[in-house]
């Protein structure tokens, strides 16, 4: 693997594999802005091998693993020669419909990746919120710059870094500046947050969390209600949730979210323990 020096080189590596590919497969869907950020911070590495290209992105104490290949057979052939599989802690996300992912899952399994988590996407059509207002609602505010460390702390305590694509400190600061984090802060301490991203008619909940000591006070409900009410122009709400977290899935159903068939298989190599 070598550090990616420019996004042009990354696109070239992809195109080299993609041109004329009969059954192109990938788990790498970079948005140009993100790609630029990763390259600038020296977080992205690349290796091209025959009919496939591999990318690693550093995140805390492990690397996100991405690939693109001419077809699943080429992926299976090329991946086993990657030295990094034996030396780095790797986590891969495979997003798609179950049926379409089968072959690629097999290719990664043949290289030693094992299932770690399975997320499902849930979608809600834009519609007025049906639940009743809460009596004595806690005050909801936008998180501010001084909350950045507390936001990061709550996210890291509430979610799994391998499965949940946790933001880095700089991404949290950017989200705060863009007013994308709603918070409840009784006595000035962050108790609960709802981190979202809205683009036009679509809005995604990225994280929704209540600190352990503030649970069972309906703070999460207050945040979700405020979020949905303040997005009345949005036509499509989305989120990802761990599929076997029935408690979370039921909460989202309560607010009108339903699975749309898209899943995310998170796989890890054997340097990451369960």
């Amino acid at each position: 693997m070598i550090p990616a020096q420019a996004i042009g080189g990354v696109f070239d590596a992809i195109q080299q594999v993609k041109a004329g590919a009969p059954a192109y497969c990938t788990n790498f869907f970079p948005v140009q802005r993100k790609l630029q950020e990763w390259v600038e911070h020296g977080e992205l590495q690349v290796e091209t091998r025959g009919e496939a290209a591999f990318f690693l992105r550093q995140d805390r104490d492990f690397w996100h693993f991405y690939f693109c290949a001419r077809d699943p057979a080429a992926l299976r052939r090329e991946i086993i020669a990657l030295a990094d599989l034996k030396t780095r802690r790797l986590a891969a996300d495979l997003v798609g419909n179950e049926e379409a992912l089968r072959e690629v899952l097999g290719a990664l399994a043949s290289a030693g990746f094992r299932p770690y988590a399975r997320l499902q996407r849930m979608v809600r059509a834009g519609a007025p919120i049906a639940t009743q207002p809460l009596i004595g609602d806690a005050e909801v505010v936008f998180a501010d710059k001084a909350d950045a460390a507390a936001v990061l702390g709550l996210l890291e305590a509430s979610f799994d870094r391998f499965a949940d694509q946790l933001p880095l400190a700089r991404e949290i600061e950017a989200a705060i500046a863009a007013r994308q984090i709603l918070a409840v802060e009784p006595a000035g301490k962050l108790a609960a947050l709802l981190f979202f991203e809205t683009q036009g008619f679509t809005s995604a909940v990225r994280y929704w969390a209540v600190a352990e000591e503030y649970r069972a006070r309906r703070l999460g409900a207050v945040l979700m209600r405020r979020y949905l009410e303040s997005h009345s122009a949005v036509r499509r709400f989305t989120l990802w949730v761990v599929a076997d977290n029935q408690n979370a899935v039921e909460k989202y159903r309560h607010y009108g979210y339903e699975p749309d068939g898209l899943v995310d298989h998170v796989l890890v190599n054997d340097l990451i323990s369960a």
Partner: peptide
Amino acid sequence: PEFDFTASNDFMADGMLDSFDMV
């Protein structure tokens, strides 16, 4: 299916396509 693409001049800004949809 939920969006009318003929009524938008900027699918990204209007949030009608995300990065997975693009792929």
